[in-house]
Amino acid sequence: METKIRGLPNAYVATHEINKGLPAARNTGLQMARGEYIFHCDSDDFVEPDMLETLYTEAVRKQADIVWCDWILSFEKNERYMKQPSFDTAYEALKAMLEGGMKYNVWNKLVRRKLYVDYEILFPAGYGMGEDMTMMLLFAHAGKVIYVPKAFYHYIKLNTNAMSNMYTDRHKEELKHNVDWISDKLIGTGGEDLKKEVSFLKLEAKFPFLLMGNMQSYKLWKEWYPEANKYILQNHAISMRNRWLQWCAWKNMFTLVWIYSRLFKLAYKVLY
């Protein structure tokens, strides 16, 4: 259902009769959109007043398909400035997202709508966990890309226990589906050249299991994407600490993994 917003020409609010989840909501917005560029803002967050004007001006000035910027991670008592890297090509940015050196979130990026339309790119309806990996498909087909070194987006994170929470079975199903889906799509688009970077993505997807501090999660880490484990020490885009932790898990040193997860949870609570 579409409802026109009074006083704002060409502005509408779309509603679903039942809750279909975030990816389906994004797809409905894409179907309704008629503008040159697409921007996503999540309901719990907010943006600086000049965000869209600045990103759009840069996109038009440099004829860019995608523009991205820095962002602010806001906790209950403090916040962090999250600086993003700059790249000359969309392919370099894509590889960085797969490696974990650049965030693939949808909400700090302005994207030319034509990319969605021409390549029939939609979000994975019904699979919300990790759905913003879809952004990597857009980079896989983009031409000119631009980075704006300023934080416009405020990502609100009030649940500081989230890093240590167990995923529900549904969360695991959704995440596995989306990692498999995006991996197949990217290998199909970029060929074997992206095989190592896709393995980095798989390692990143299962990394949170090592922070949960229980044998069930450790078992899941071992079961997910064992073929990617041989690349653990090759990803220099993530910290040596994270590589060491994954290497310990690969070698079944789960006592060390458990000790680290306890220390991690304590430090996270104290800092944030």
Results as ranks from 00 to 15, higher is better:
Lys157Met: 02
Lys157Glu: 00
Lys157Val: 08
Lys157Leu: 03
Lys157Arg: 03
Lys157Ser: 04
Leu158Met: 10
Asn159Glu: 03
Asn159Arg: 01
Asn159Val: 02
Thr160Glu: 02
Thr160Asp: 03
Thr160Met: 03
Thr160Gly: 00
Thr160Arg: 03
Asn161Trp: 02
Asn161Glu: 07
Asn161Tyr: 08
Asn161Val: 07
Met163Cys: 00
Met163Gln: 00
Met163Ala: 01
Ser164Ile: 09
Ser164His: 06
Ser164Thr: 05
Ser164Val: 12
Ser164Tyr: 04
Asn165His: 09
Asn165Glu: 15
Asn165Cys: 09
Met166Gly: 04
Met166Gln: 09
Tyr167Arg: 06
Tyr167His: 10
Tyr167Gln: 14
Tyr167Glu: 06
Tyr167Phe: 10
Thr168Ile: 00
Thr168Gln: 01
Asp169Ile: 01
Asp169Tyr: 01
Arg170Asn: 03
Arg170Trp: 04
Lys172Glu: 13
Lys172Asn: 08
Lys172Ile: 15
Lys172Tyr: 04
Glu173Phe: 11
Glu173Ile: 09
Glu173Lys: 07
Glu173Thr: 13
Glu173Ala: 14
Glu174Met: 05
Glu174Asp: 03
Leu175Val: 03
Leu175His: 02
Lys176Thr: 14
Lys176Val: 12
Lys176Asp: 05
Lys176Gln: 10
Lys176Arg: 13
Lys176Asn: 02
His177Asn: 07
His177Trp: 05
His177Val: 07
Asn178Gln: 02
Asn178Lys: 04
Val179Glu: 04
Val179Pro: 15
Val179Asn: 01
Asp180Phe: 14
Asp180Gly: 07
Asp180Met: 14
Trp181Ser: 13
Trp181Thr: 10
Trp181His: 11
Ile182Phe: 03
Ile182Met: 06
Ile182Asp: 08
Ile182Ala: 02
Ser183His: 01
Ser183Gln: 01
Ser183Cys: 10
Ser183Tyr: 04
Ser183Phe: 05
Ser183Met: 03
Asp184His: 11
Asp184Lys: 11
Asp184Glu: 15
Asp184Gln: 15
Asp184Pro: 08
Asp184Gly: 14
Asp184Ala: 09
Lys185Ser: 13
Lys185Leu: 05
Lys185Arg: 12
Lys185Pro: 01
Lys185Val: 10
Lys185Cys: 13
Lys185Gly: 01
Leu186Val: 09
Leu186Asn: 11
Leu186Thr: 10
Leu186Ala: 12
Leu186Gly: 10
Ile187Gln: 14
Ile187Asp: 06
Ile187Gly: 10
Ile187Val: 15
Gly188Ala: 05
Gly188His: 08
Gly188Thr: 11
Gly188Trp: 02
Thr189Phe: 08
Thr189Pro: 06
Thr189Ser: 06
Thr189Glu: 13
Thr189Trp: 09
Thr189His: 15
Gly190Thr: 04
Gly190Ala: 04
Gly190Ile: 14
Gly190His: 10
Gly190Leu: 14
Gly190Gln: 09
Gly191Val: 05
Gly191Ser: 09
Gly191Thr: 12
Gly191Gln: 10
Gly191Ala: 02
Glu192Cys: 07
Glu192Leu: 11
Glu192Phe: 06
Glu192Arg: 13
Asp193Trp: 06
Asp193Gly: 08
Asp193Leu: 02
Asp193Ile: 05
Asp193His: 06
Leu194Ser: 07
Leu194Pro: 04
Leu194Tyr: 15
Lys195Cys: 12
Lys195Asn: 07
Lys195Met: 14
Lys196Leu: 08
Lys196Cys: 12
Lys196Trp: 01
